[in-house]
């Protein structure tokens, strides 16, 4: 009876430690402050808004898509994504990019676009009609 618990217990301990180890290995933190993003060499999820004034760019040769992303504090960084422009990109209210910052660019391996499902949360300005 005692052996059973020791056996079961040790399996649980091994399982949990492997899980915790892999969790820390694959852990990606959300950052909404780009000054932190630029100063870490870890993979992060950076959240910001696309700077519409600086139009995005599609490089057909190298199959990259790049644009500028701005955080709440107004920090901007250039994001390069190895792939094509995601669906919904133009209408996205905020963009979450997963990747690393290096050599002056944020190299994204994944882009998640968040779209306004309703106009309710959007700033709408009164026109002078």
């Amino acid at each position: 009876m005692k052996n059973k618990y020791i056996f079961g217990g040790s399996i649980i301990v091994i399982f949990l430690s492997i899980m915790i180890y892999l969790f820390t290995q694959s852990n990606i933190q959300y950052k909404d402050d780009f000054s932190q993003v630029m100063n870490t060499n870890k993979t992060v999820k950076a959240t910001g808004v696309w700077v519409k004034d600086k139009s995005y760019e599609i490089d057909k040769e190298n199959k990259t898509f790049s644009f500028y992303l701005m955080d709440d504090q107004g920090n901007e960084m250039k994001v390069i994504y190895n792939g094509t422009i995601p669906n919904n990109f133009e209408s996205a209210t905020s963009v979450v990019v997963t990747g690393k910052y290096a050599n002056g660019y944020f190299h994204a391996k994944d882009i998640l676009t968040k779209c306004p499902s309703k106009y309710e949360n959007q700033d709408v300005q009164t026109s002078t009609m």
């Binding site: 492997i18 899980m19 892999l22 969790f23 290995q25 694959s26 852990n27 990606i28 933190q29 959300y30």
Partner: peptide
């Protein structure tokens, strides 16, 4: 159940401002 716990931990990570890469699920 072990598999369920793994996926539960990974999926709940965003509640704590964390997130896991898909290799976490695959490897485990």
């Amino acid at each position: 159940i072990a598999s369920a716990i793994i996926i539960l931990v990974g999926t709940s990570a965003p509640l704590f401002g964390q997130s896991v890469d898909t290799f976490f699920y695959n490897e485990m």
